[in-house]
Design a protein around this nucleic acid. Structure first.
Length: 301
RNA sequence: GGUACCAUAGCUCAGUCGGUAGAGCAACGGACUGAAAAUCCGUGUGUCCCCGGUUCGAUUCCUGGUGGUACCA
C-alpha cells in the first residue's frame, strides 16, 4: 500500500448495477463517490434517471447528484472542472476516491481531460440552428468548409451536432476548431484504476425492462408531467422523458411509450458498451463478483 | 365433428405465373473532445410448418398430416 492517490473508476452500461457496486466498494475502501452520470445531476429528474434512493445515498456519500436544475446549462468540460476541484478537496482526507458512472464523455473528461474551448454562445447556437432547420445539412457543410477545411475532411458530414459545434467554436474564436484540439491526454496528479462491469446481454436487457416498469410504478408519468413547461431544455432530451412527453401529447399510447423507453434504453446501453470497448486494456467484471473486483483493485493500489 | 382460410426472419407481413426470398419494426455492429441518456452511420440474421408426390428443379403445384383463425354444427 502506497501513499499515491488513486481514483477508482467504475464504468458500465445503464442498469447493470453500478450504484449497488459503488456503494459496496465505497464502504469497503472507506471512501466516497463522484457520480459521473450526466442525467442524475438534475434534481427534477429522479425517477426517470434511476437516481440512487435516499437510503442508498445514506450508505455512501455521493457527489454530483441532484446538484443542478434541469434548466441549467452544463457540459462535460464543466464537469471535468467541478469533479477535479471536488477531488482535490477529498484527497486531503483520503487516498482513494471512487468515480462511478455511465456517461462516457464525462468519465473521459475526468480521466483524460478535454481541450479548452470557449464557452458556448446560446444566441449564436440558436441562429445557426435556425439556419440549419431552414437550409439543411448543406448549410452546415458549406459553413464548416469555409471556417475549418481540415475538420471538414474528418468530420461526419451527416452529423449536424458535430458540424454545429465546430462552426460555433470557429466563429467564437476566429480560429478553426480543429486547431484547438490537441489530441493529448491531460496529466493527472492521481493514479486511475478503471474497470468495466457488464452482464450477459439477456440479463442486462431483462434488468432494463424491469427497471422501466418500476419507474412507471414509481410515478414516472407524473414526474414528466410536472416538467412539461421545460420540456425543451437539453436535460429533458432523455430516454424516458421524451417518450412520456409523446404519450402526454396524445400521439402514442402509454404501453407503446413504455416499449419505446425499453428499446431506447437498450440502444443506449449498446452505445455505452461500444464506447467502453475502445478502452482495450480495461478489465471487465460481473457486478456481483465483488471479491474479484476488490482483489483487482487491491492489486493496483 | 364439418367447411373455408392461413402457416415465409425474433414480431407483423409481402413475394416467388416453379429457378432456395424482402419490407417495416425489433436485433446486431460501428463512429463520437462542451447537447453525450445527445447526435450520426452501417448490416438481413431464414429447414419459406412436416411427410410424400409431380418436375431437371418445389418455399411456390398436388395428396396426406400437424398447428392456428373464422364460420357452421
Amino acid at each position: 500500500m502506497s501513499f499515491i492517490r488513486h481514483l477508482i473508476v467504475i464504468v458500465g452500461p445503464t442498469a447493470v448495477g453500478k450504484t449497488a457496486l459503488g456503494i459496496k466498494l465505497a464502504r469497503h475502501f472507506c471512501t466516497e463517490i463522484i457520480s459521473a452520470d450526466s442525467r442524475q445531476f438534475y434534481r427534477e429528474m429522479q425517477i426517470g434517471t434511476a437516481t440512487p434512493s435516499a437510503g442508498e445515498l445514506l450508505q455512501a456519500k455521493h457527489y454530483f447528484i441532484q446538484n443542478k436544475s434541469a434548466t441549467d446549462y452544463y457540459n462535460a468540460s464543466m464537469f471535468e472542472f467541478d469533479a477535479l476541484e471536488m477531488m482535490d478537496k477529498l484527497f486531503k482526507n483520503q487516498n482513494i476516491i471512487l468515480m462511478v458512472g455511465g456517461s462516457t464523455l464525462y468519465v473521459d473528461a475526468v480521466c483524460n481531460g478535454i481541450d479548452d474551448l470557449p464557452a458556448i454562445d446560446m444566441e449564436l447556437r440558436e441562429k445557426l440552428m435556425k439556419q440549419y432547420r431552414e437550409e439543411g445539412l448543406e448549410f452546415l457543410r458549406h459553413k464548416l468548409k469555409v471556417l475549418d477545411p481540415d475538420h471538414y475532411q474528418k468530420v461526419d458530414l451527416r452529423n449536424p451536432n458535430r458540424m454545429l459545434k465546430a462552426i460555433e467554436v470557429s466563429l467564437i474564436t476566429g480560429k478553426p476548431y480543429s486547431s484547438m484540439l490537441t489530441a493529448t491526454s491531460k496529466e493527472r496528479n492521481f493514479n486511475i484504476i478503471k474497470l468495466g462491469i457488464n452482464r450477459e446481454r439477456p440479463e442486462l436487457f431483462s434488468r432494463i425492462n424491469q427497471r422501466v416498469d418500476q419507474m412507471i410504478a414509481d410515478g414516472l408519468v407524473d414526474e414528466v408531467k410536472s416538467l412539461m413547461s421545460i420540456r425543451e431544455s437539453n436535460a429533458l432530451k432523455t430516454v424516458g422523458y421524451r417518450e412520456i412527453f409523446e404519450y402526454l401529447d396524445g400521439s402514442i399510447s402509454l404501453s407503446l411509450a413504455i416499449e419505446k423507453i425499453k428499446t431506447n434504453t437498450r440502444r443506449y446501453a449498446k452505445r455505452q458498451l461500444t464506447w467502453f470497448s475502445r478502452d482495450k486494456g480495461m478489465p471487465w467484471f460481473h457486478p456481483e463478483n465483488t471479491d474479484q473486483i476488490v482483489d483487482y483493485i487491491q492489486s493496483k493500489l
